[in-house]
């Protein structure tokens, strides 16, 4: 499903502030996996996640998503892969303030030729499944942290993606909400989606349904554990 071959990512290459964020990483995530990128802050988890998710390109090496080499695709096709394959849940949620929960959830699919009434219907269905039925037309800036995250999850699901990518999803949540988030992810995995989470929270990688743990340090893979 997702494969990286000797992927390396430099930031500010050739400048004094050059950073080698990801160094010669070769991993494989299989369909239906519940994968965790584990490692201390600054170890390159986020960078690796964005390389996989077609948000940036590797300096060298190849990224293969669903048997397609995406690392050299032109911009337009990268966007297409990103839109059709991935759902993103960001650490800071990144909801658009000032508009409602439902409008935020519909955002990824607005530039399509589907009628807004139809888009709204599917957004409402997803929100209801996530227990957000009472908050559909609520302005997002007034939501609690957990609700904001569920909105972000709903937004990630509106494309019906095969792969969910989440970056430090439990960083701003208490234990109870973190458990809730994980059960949602577990649920999605059971529905056939592939889950990839970058985190340094033991609550996440100690779960017994985690099928793949990739431990990183200083941009390199330190250990790969398959359960």
């Amino acid at each position: 499903m997702i494969k990286t071959e000797n992927v390396t990512k430099y930031f500010n290459r050739g400048n004094p502030d050059e950073v080698l964020a990801v160094n010669d990483v070769s991993i494989e995530v299989k369909e239906g996996d519940f994968a965790v990128f584990k490692g201390p802050s600054g170890s390159g988890k986020t960078t690796l996640l964005s390389l996989i998710g077609c948000m940036s390109r590797p300096t060298s090496g190849r990224v293969i998503v669903e048997d397609r080499d995406v690392s050299r695709l032109p911009e337009r096709f990268m966007t297409e892969v990103r839109r059709n394959t991935f759902g993103f849940i960001f650490q800071q949620f990144h909801l658009i303030k000032g508009i409602s929960v439902c409008d935020n959830v519909m955002l990824p699919v607005l530039p399509t030729d589907i009628k807004p009434s139809k888009l709204r219907k599917s957004a409402v269905r997803i929100l209801e499944n996530l227990g957000m039925s009472g908050r559909i037309d609520f302005p997002v800036q007034k939501l609690s942290g957990g609700e904001q995250q569920r909105t972000a999850i709903a937004r990630a699901l509106i494309n019906n993606p095969d792969i969910i990518l989440a970056d430090e999803p439990t960083a701003h949540l208490d234990t109870h909400l973190s458990e809730e988030f994980l059960s949602i992810m577990r649920n999605l995995q059971q529905q056939g989606k592939t889950i990839v989470i970058a985190t340094h929270d033991p609550l996440v990688y100690d779960k017994d349904y985690v099928s793949l743990i990739i431990e990183m340090r200083d941009g390199r893979v330190r250990e790969i554990i398959r359960n």
Partner: peptide, 19 residues
Amino acid sequence: KQEIGILKAIGWETSDVLE
């Protein structure tokens, strides 16, 4: 800038943003 980044990250094309 952040709004444009978010829109692109969740699947908007460059042309959609410019539109």
